[in-house]
């Protein structure tokens, strides 16, 4: 690793000033599990590292019954996986946290870092001056693209690697972003950006802005949520394709719901047409099959990754069948 100037700010304001001052040459550092990989491989060579671990009040999980779950950005992924109230009321989130990386990485990595992690594309991580690194070519287009996106791509074809983001979006989570002199809270659906919006970043964070909290509304008793992840290795791995769903069931029908896919797009992928179709859908197998035809309808796979489309659709069906009693045809 190349030497860098090390900052350990004591307040969010101080961190924000440091980050804004030297945005191009400084990197924000939380758990460090992703950043250290980027630094060791020379993918990023910042002159300054701003370690956020000294910031107070960001390592708490606050659960207000009937209202919201608030998770500080520095909360470790292991804490989320093991938290009794999260396991009980937000099973999808606990499942996604427990399936993230390995025990060691879950003890080190934070939720804030997890949602802000950089892509795992092997051209981006490797010795290729690709589009996302300021080059003029996405090597995945003509190259090895088995793990790349099938929808929402172009001109770069990354997928967002996080498990948690997929679930957070299905649960209607919001992200609080703070900077010196201000703050805002945005839905996760507005936090991530596609390559066509910003080729060099995966989220909306601007110079000096820092993620401080994640807020998740507490579901009522009729809401069910779950997460299914397909990976190539049986033990820890990034998702090839994943799906999260939260559905509200009443009177033998789905009253409302959200389905979000991971591993298929440069951001957690949610389709309004699919969510609309969920409304009022009877819990019958034949009706669920309609969803299959609808999901990822606009997908344009690359040469090696068309398999992701049926995989994602089938995962979605398996998850819905796990969440609700389905009447066979």
């Amino acid at each position: 690793m190349k030497p860098f100037v090390y900052h350990q700010p004591k307040s969010i304001e101080e961190a924000s000033v440091l980050s804004a001052k030297n945005w191009e040459e400084a990197v924000l550092f939380a758990g460090g599990t992703d950043v250290l990989g980027l630094l060791k491989d020379g993918i990023e060579e910042p002159k300054e590292v701003i370690n956020l671990k000294g910031l107070e009040g960001l390592d708490q999980i606050d659960f207000t019954k009937g209202k919201e779950l608030r998770i500080g950005a520095l909360v470790k992924i292991a804490q989320i996986a093991e938290h009794p109230a999260i396991k009980q009321s937000f099973p999808a989130l606990a499942q996604a946290a427990a399936q993230t990386a390995s025990p060691q990485l879950r003890n080190m990595g934070t939720i804030g870092g997890n949602i802000c992690q950089r892509p795992r594309c092997w051209y981006f991580r490797g010795d290729f001056h690709c589009l996302r690194k300021g080059g003029d070519e996405c090597f995945a287009v003509e190259g090895e693209n088995k793990y790349h996106c099938v929808i929402g791509g172009g001109p770069c074809y990354i997928v967002h690697p996080s498990d948690l983001t997929v679930v957070l979006q299905a649960l209607g989570a919001k992200v609080t972003i703070v900077w010196k002199g201000g703050q805002k809270t945005v839905p996760t659906s507005q936090f991530f950006v596609l390559p066509e919006e910003d080729l060099y970043r995966e989220n909306i964070l601007k110079p000096g802005e820092i993620v401080t909290h994640i807020h998740i509304p507490v579901p009522d008793s009729k809401m069910k949520s779950g997460y299914l992840k397909f990976k190539e290795r049986d033990v820890w791995d990034f998702a090839v394709v994943s799906v999260a769903a939260s559905v509200r069931i009443a009177n033998g029908r789905i009253e409302s719901g959200r389905i979000v896919f991971g591993g298929v797009a440069p951001k957690p992928w949610e389709e309004e047409t699919l969510n609309r179709e969920l409304k009022g859908l009877p819990l019958k197998d034949a009706d669920l099959q309609k969803l299959k035809a609808l999901a990822l309808k606009e997908a344009e796979p690359l040469e090696q990754n068309a398999y992701k489309i049926p995989l994602a659709r089938n995962l979605m069906l398996s998850l819905l069948k796990e969440l609700m009693p389905i009447i066979p045809n």
Binding site: G32, T33, L36, P103, Q104, N107, M108
Partner: peptide, 8 residues
Amino acid sequence: AVYSCHIL
């Protein structure tokens, strides 16, 4: 448990 190679 942590990875000591991957922590400052």
